[in-house]
Each structure stands twice: as structure tokens, then as C-alpha cells.
Simulated scan of single mutants.
Amino acid sequence: MMAFQKTVSARIYRLFLAHAERNGCDPRAIAKGMGLDEDSLENPYARVSRDRHLSLLRMAADWTVPFEPVKNGIAGWLRPFPELAGVVCNCPTLGDAMQHFVQYRDIIGNVDWVTVQQSDDSIAIEYMLDGDDLTGRALGNFAIIVDLARLYDPRVKVGDAELSGAPSPAYKTWSDVIGTRIEHHQPRNRLVLRSSALHTPFVKYNETLASIHLDAAMRLRETIRGRASFAEQVKLHLHEWLRDASDDLSQERIQQRLCEQLGISRWTLQRRLQAEQVQFGHLLNLARVHEATWLLTHTQLPISEIADRMRFGSTSAFTRFFTRAYGTPPTRYRTANWRGTDPLTTIGQA
């Protein structure tokens, strides 16, 4: 199966190395081990591999000086990422800002992923981990999301904040930032925001600047993705759209949207994939299998909802597809490969 490239921006490591020094570590030695130099920490294209990033987070979990949240809200969080800040801090509504944050998180990193589901007055955000369950990975993103929401609605309320991991001494004061008690040892990493202004026009929205910032963010994201093969770029887009559970897309519409995003024709799409000996339908199936296996083994979502997220017309169609790919039905696969907290509850929901 084709490798799926996962990295984080090296820009974030200026803060990480400063925190390492406060914990008695030699930041120069850490940077050298990662292949980073002073220029890399400011280079918008420099990235750190998933495995290296996770190994450093495991090391940081033992540090005695805790991580401190930023003091000046969303401006502090996104100062290293002005391209992302320009997009998410200037949207027509709070709801649009949340969707843009999910779409352009690649600028920070694509190791984990976020899904957003909206109703009339609430937003449910789920943070899905790839690899070790380190509390800070979800918690840091939740803090960013809460402060972003406060920019649009200072009265926004946090209804729920759930983390799948155990409390960490490295994060002692973050409940105050989130604005509610954080519940640990939960089935998933989930945050619920409640706001009566979810779809209210943002009074500071500047449409002209929004188009300029969006273009800059799109070009940076595509440049980052462009370091992979063309087929891997396509796969990144497919993963992104499959994770957006609110977006109901047929295979034909997904292909059309992909061409619009990349600025190419369908003929060019097919020609470039053929040059790498890959078919679009094969990439879509790989993306569906990858997402489905992760959801089966890490979440308690019912099989029917996973089928909907993977754009299948019925649960039975998804079951047949998955069984052909893995030789076992999705329920049995979940039982054998469960990495969450309560497989019996999960299967009972299916």
C-alpha cells in the first residue's frame, strides 16, 4: 500500500527547543538530532517526520517543568504560522473559521486529524490521534480552537472537553484555558463549543484580505504537499474530504472537486496518475480503507456511521467492500484490532 507522508512544521520547534532548555536539556543537541538548524526553524517548508515528532513528544512527557499555554489568545498560538492565521482569523462567520482551521492544519502538521460537525448553535470537534495517546497533542489543538472561537464570539461556552489519555503533569493549568473541567480516560478526544453566533456575520471580516490570505495559505499547503508524489498529493485531498463528515460527496463530485482544487482538467488528472501507474479509483479505495480501519480501531462510531463517512450508500455495501479488502467483516476486524477503551460498547452500537 502506498505510504502516506506525515510531517509537522519545523517552525513549531523554536518553541519546543526553548521549553527543552527550561527542562535542562541541550536544545542544540536535540536540533542536531532532528537535522534542524537556525534557518530550518523559520523555513516555511521545513518539516519534521511523524516518527521523529512522536519520539520527541514522548521524551517531553517526562519533563518536570510543565508546558504553559500562551497568554495572548489566538494571536499567540498562531504567531509562527501567519499564513494559517490570515485564513482562520478573517472568515465570514465562526462556523467558517472552524472549517478553515481543519482544511489548512497541514500548514502546522498532518500527523493527526480533526473533524468538525456543526448544528445551529454548537460545534463538535473530534481530534483523532495517529500513534501514542499523548494528552498534549489533542489538548494543545483544543486550546487553539477555543481561543479562535473567542475571537468571533467572546461569550462562546465549552460544553464538553474529553480526552482519551490520562492527566499529564506536563499540562497543569490548561483547564482554565479551555474554560471547563477536562474529563480524562474518555472514549475519544472531543470538544463541544456552544454559541448563538455560530452563523452570525463577523463584524471584522475583510473580504479583500480574506481572498489574499486564502490564496497564500493554499499555495503554501500545496507546496508542502507537492514534495510528495502526485498520487500522494491526491491521496492527501481524499483523506481530508473523507474526514469531513458533513460533506456529502459522490465519487464523481470528489473527482471534480479535486480537479478544481489542483487547477487541472480531468484529462490531466488521469494522465498524471497514469504516469505513476495509479488509478483514481484505486486511490479513493485506499483512502477509504485507511480511514475506515482507523475509525474501527480507535473510535466507538457505529458501523453505519463509518459507512456514511466513507460515502457508501448502505452499511451492507461498506461491509462487502471492507470484507473484500481485508478478508474479514468490519465488526470482526474491530474486535481483533481494537486500540480504544471499550470494544464491547463499540460493537454493541454497530
Score class of each variant (00 low, 15 high):
158 V>A: 03
167 P>V: 03
319 T>E: 08
291 E>A: 14
330 P>M: 05
185 H>K: 14
40 S>R: 11
34 M>L: 15
97 A>D: 02
268 T>F: 11
96 D>E: 15
329 P>M: 11
292 A>D: 00
296 L>D: 03
194 R>K: 13
298 H>W: 12
257 R>E: 12
102 V>G: 02
105 R>P: 01
115 T>L: 03
228 A>W: 07
188 R>I: 13
17 L>Q: 01
284 L>R: 07
335 T>Y: 09
111 V>N: 00
34 M>D: 03
304 S>V: 10
208 T>S: 12
102 V>F: 09
106 D>W: 06
111 V>P: 01
84 L>Y: 08
179 G>K: 04
221 R>T: 05
283 L>W: 12
242 L>C: 02
228 A>Y: 08
150 R>C: 03
188 R>L: 13
95 G>H: 04
315 T>D: 05
237 H>Y: 14
14 R>F: 05
270 Q>T: 15
258 L>P: 01
299 T>R: 07
83 E>M: 06
46 A>W: 07
117 Q>Y: 10
218 M>L: 14
336 A>Q: 14
330 P>C: 06
204 K>T: 05
21 E>I: 00
300 Q>G: 04
140 G>D: 04
157 K>F: 10
290 H>Y: 13
267 W>K: 14
193 L>V: 04
337 N>F: 12
275 A>N: 08
189 N>S: 03
83 E>N: 06
280 F>C: 02
326 Y>G: 02
235 K>R: 13
85 A>V: 05
350 A>K: 07
3 A>Q: 15
167 P>F: 11
65 V>L: 05
108 I>C: 02
150 R>L: 08
188 R>Y: 06
28 R>K: 11
247 D>Y: 11
182 I>Q: 00
29 A>F: 01
222 E>H: 12
104 Y>N: 02
32 K>I: 00
135 T>Y: 11
274 Q>T: 10
143 A>R: 06
129 L>K: 10
275 A>S: 05
202 F>D: 01
274 Q>G: 03
334 R>P: 01
209 L>E: 14
315 T>V: 09
107 I>W: 06
92 P>A: 06
289 V>L: 15
64 T>P: 00
25 C>S: 01
151 L>Y: 07
294 W>S: 10
75 A>K: 09
195 S>L: 06
35 G>F: 12
147 D>G: 04
9 S>W: 08
292 A>I: 07
197 A>R: 14
295 L>I: 07
252 E>C: 05
137 R>K: 15
146 V>P: 00
105 R>E: 09
205 Y>L: 08
121 D>L: 06
80 P>S: 01
